[in-house]
Design a protein around this nucleic acid. Structure first.
Lengths: 203, 203, 203, 203
DNA sequence: AATGAATGAGGCTTCATTCAT
DNA sequence: GATGAATGAAGCCTCATTCAT
């Protein structure tokens, strides 16, 4: 009975009271996701924690998927934000320096809320892939690809995907294992990236 | 109120009739997991696909978690198997060669059933972590750590974790994106690993 | 693995709509209990007879035990009510008169719905014994004990228990056998009680 | 689907091995009944505890009810046994003495396995009432009635029922409350019975 | 006779979603 | 707009009973 459920919010309210409810729902969902993973995410629980009735929740979201989708959208947007600065800063630098700058930004992004971001990445992998998210992802990729192309790397799409996946994998594993020193993680990951890029890892 | 659900099978039957049912359940579960992910894994579906009644399923497993746990156990055991050969072959080789051998084995392992192995890895991350699985994981790690220690690498546990996570991440992403040429993937991943290890990636 | 099931209602609604459902569930449960005993008490049957969905039932009660517990609570409260009047009336009377007054009230209490009250007494014996019920039971006992102490009887707790149990047993048996003349029953039981109390049964 | 299940054993085996299984089932059932009450009585559990397969259980009993019924039959037969001696001893004695003798036997009967006997009494009340049990019960009653008639008591059937019920009620309550001194219980109950019979309780 | 694997009806409970107020 | 009571499909699990070996 999977009815290709709609993933976009029903209305994005502008009035303050509505706005508050809308945000409350998202915040509650994020907290639950962080604490209990996707298994714990159910509309009744979200509404309750948001201090809002289920009815209201459904006023703004056509279903639970849509809530998750909106969270994905936001975290992706934030990633774009986080990376954009780095990409600008990386412009004109050597590939080695550029890699370091972007990596650093990326790690900081994931470290903000590791559990939540891991959960949202999982959801993103499973979800039918929303247009808007795709658009953001494309922008992120485009930035990365641009940077890579600047340094005349072949198949920059593949490179972007590889580096993203490698980094995600390692960073999540490290954070999951209890590490907190981001610089440490970065110091270990950078040589791998440099190696991938064919640069001498011993800077 | 997460009731620390029991994860071990109820009985591991040796008689042919039972054995067949037991295996049918596991096979069905693996197929469902592969097709629909953990969300689709429910006792009724598994029983039906296994051509067995729910009652029979419960005869052997105290619940769906236990089925998943057994699958995790098996895939880990297989990984151990797959790696053991590689680790033996790697003995006495240079770090560079050793890395290549192990990586190759690891990729082949994941490529057998990418969706399933990804799903099982997720499950493993979420599960309370079963003693038996922990034991197998330890053996895998011990093998890796031994190899790394042979080459006088510091903090081999961290290195093992980092490399495992990086590789998993990238390999899954590549397979997910539709790549099928394992050699290709290996050729991209190896330099990253060499870089991580501080070796010159351009062999 | 008896999970100390929760016995208190989830919410005791005050709004008319909810209130009606809540009461409907209790009424239905009482009827079923009366007709089929505890074996027939299952959530589906209760919900159906109450003209309510299972979901609604679970909105108010965490499980069938909780429904039974609430019925026990109510009948005990009613017993307390019924006896309180009698105890007041018995004050200052002779022990013989007092016994007769209390007995009479007690019989009338049981005769209201003999099947139901017998079933609820059984349940009460089996249940983990709820705080609230314990409190009511204590009050009932306290009343009885007070009365007995007034007449300088030793070990009034034991006496209260003995008389209660004897009466229950005989009254239920008589009603079960089809007797309907309460006065008859009372006339037979009273001498036993007087005898127990060491008074001359031939008043 | 209550098919008026048959209550008599399928066959009462005479061969030693069969006999042993048959008895093992009954013993197991009694133990479970004693420990967990009727709720815990299920055929699989009984068979397992009896060290016998379910198939074998069904060889001898057409269903779980039949097992319970047989236990009821036996305990009733035992009661008859226990009382018969007392009734003989009571013959020719004064009513007061006779009452004391029978009461004493009755208390001893219940005290052998209070939990079990209470559980079986409940079952008996609920069961469709088996012919054989009815026959035994009649004999018990007849004995009692004979004794009562000997002393020219009117409506001896009612008296028998009343006294039985009163005694049961009080004895079970006392045992349930943890009392172990049977003589104590008897000393309290006797005057009630004497009172009931219109005799001076202060012997 | 005995075994025990298999069955499936039936009972329990949750949670996404609707809708009257 | 908001509420929250109500719904019921869907998943979980047990246990009485059958039947092939």
């Amino acid at each position: 009975m999977t009815h290709a459920a709609p993933l976009s919010p029903r209305k994005t309210p502008r009035q303050s009271r509505s706005r508050a409810s809308y945000e409350a729902v998202l915040t509650a969902a994020a907290q639950i996701l962080e604490r209990d993973g996707i298994a714990g995410l159910n509309t009744n629980a979200v509404a309750e924690r948001a201090g809002v009735s289920v009815g209201t929740l459904y006023q703004y979201f056509p279903g639970k998927e849509a809530i998750a989708a909106e969270l994905v959208r936001r975290i992706k947007a934030q990633l774009l934000d986080d990376l954009t600065g780095a990409l600008v800063a990386a412009q004109g630098r050597s590939l080695r320096e550029a890699a370091q700058i972007v990596l650093s930004a990326s790690i900081r992004h994931h470290a903000r809320a590791p559990e939540l971001s891991r959960e949202l990445e999982r959801i993103e992998e499973d979800l039918p892939l929303d247009d808007e998210v795709a658009a953001i992802t494309d922008k992120v990729h485009a930035g990365l690809i641009g940077l890579l192309a600047e340094h005349a790397l072949p198949a920059p799409e593949v490179v972007a995907r590889d580096l993203t996946a490698m980094s995600r994998g390692m960073v999540h594993a490290a954070l999951f294992a209890g590490e907190t020193d981001l610089a440490q993680i970065e110091r270990r990951l950078l040589p791998a990236i440099l190696g991938y890029l064919g640069l001498d890892p011993r800077g």
